[in-house]
Amino acid sequence: MTKSDDPIITIENVYKFFGDIEALSNVSLKVKKKEKMVIIGPSGSGKSTLLRAINRLEGVDRGKIVIDGQDITDKNCNINKVRMELGMVFQNFNLFPHKSVLQNLTMAPIKLKKIPQAQARENAMSLLEKVGIKEKATAYPAQLSGGQQQRVAIARALAMNPKIMLFDEPTSALDPEMIGEVLDVMVNLALEGMTMVVVTHEMGFARQVADWVVFMDEGKIVETGTPEHFFQSPEHPRTKKFLSQIL
């Protein structure tokens, strides 16, 4: 058992190369239970690569990543087990188009956790209610708007009852008027005490929710701090420049 003070995610001296390009360069991070970490940075800064390394969608070349006591950089680690504890939400939703909304939510719990169908459906319906989309349970993903699809995707990840939620630019593919509905769901999730790592360009969300903001550039962590520190008195010139461009 991990004490609540122990980090649930530990990233130590991680390197990742794409050919000659250093996508991650000596990155170290710790996230404690119930903490919300927001990673920001220009495109190509390695922030998505870092997030994807946390559930090994992207393997790393050097360094160590430990999730809830499990070293996922160890080849003998059962990554599928670890991933069940790690919900992930993608920029492009990636719902299963051949399954209804309800089936998108129940598939993994039924097949992987062997939860009885009736119970899985019940859980799924309450999650859909939580993300405000219960009436679309029988619809297919293609019948939903982008915002609705992303809310279903969040519910699908939550259906596995994960300990940590990873968000990879969850609002970047959305029309502006749909961003709010997705952020609302994420804020509520944060208020409930979910451990979250979020890659985003939504600075309002970072300000409101984050315990820590991490600024990355060229594969390195440039600056880490509380939102107050970040948005009021950033230290590093690169951070100042980035913030002045987007705020």
Partner: peptide, 12 residues
């Protein structure tokens, strides 16, 4: 993305 979504849920 379909593969990534399935793998991230824990499917082998």
């Amino acid at each position: 993305g379909q593969t990534e979504a399935a793998r991230s849920l824990g499917f082998s």
